[in-house]
């Protein structure tokens, strides 16, 4: 998705502000939101890629305005609406003193589904990887309206495969509940100049972990 989340290489964001000895959570609400997201008793949406895609679907102002945990809150509320836990305006009504409709007895929340992440993404597939270490590739001009993990700055760029990772569930389809479609993932190295042209800093290279279908032989 060509969204504001795809920040790599954008200009205009200024200096990286570093806070010394910062706490894990700066405000109480940040910890509460984080904890609620990890312990919510109902279905938490399909998987972690769907969760990432919710944050991509925030409008650009909402994406930035309350920082990282603001995105967690906004996407948690989005998930609650998509899973029919909260109706539009219901939280606002509750804040204004409306009574809560209790869950009826025997209508307990469904068992928790652990969000898919990390090692859980690896799958066995019955075919060998299409590309090997040392092979030159070019990335496809892949820009779907939905979720993808190919950043815009790395489209149509030449790189070299440095490592073949195991096959993993394909982010682009699983985020939309269109199946796992596991694919090999490759650690691809790009020269700074290939990505940034004559503005590249000398002596810099970049590594991305890319799904097989993002790539073509160069």
């Amino acid at each position: 998705m060509n969204g504001i989340h795809d920040l790599g290489g954008l200009h205009g964001f200024g200096k990286v502000e570093v806070e010394q000895d910062e706490p894990v959570f700066h405000e109480r609400w940040e910890g509460r939101v984080f904890g609620m997201c990890l312990t919510f008793g109902g279905r938490r949406g399909p998987n972690v890629d769907a969760a990432r895609h919710r944050s991509e679907r925030l409008d650009p102002v909402s994406y930035f305005q309350n920082g990282y945990f603001g995105r967690w809150l906004a996407t948690f509320e989005m998930m609650l609406k998509e899973e029919d836990v909260l109706a539009e305006g219901e939280l606002e009504d509750y804040m204004n003193g409306a009574a809560v409709q209790k869950v009826a007895d025997g209508d307990a929340p469904p068992p928790q589904r652990r969000p898919l992440r990390g090692i859980d993404a690896v799958r066995e597939v019955d075919h060998p990887p299409r590309y090997g270490e040392g092979q030159a590739i070019i990335t496809r001009n892949h820009q779907p309206a939905g979720h993808t993990r190919l950043p815009a700055y790395a489209r149509c760029r030449r790189g070299v495969i440095k490592k073949v990772h195991p096959a993993m569930v394909f982010a682009d389809t699983i985020a939309h509940e269109q199946g796992e479609n596991p694919q090999y993932v490759y650690s691809v190295e790009f020269d700074g100049a290939e990505l940034w042209g004559d503005t590249a800093e000398p002596g810099t290279v970049l590594r991305l972990d890319l799904f097989e279908s993002y790539l073509e032989a160069a």
């Binding site: 990390g118 993993m168 590594r207 991305l208 890319l210």
Partner: peptide
């Protein structure tokens, strides 16, 4: 040489 690792998959 500086190598930047952009964490684009589940590694």
């Amino acid at each position: 040489t500086i190598r930047v690792w952009d964490s684009s998959a589940e590694i």
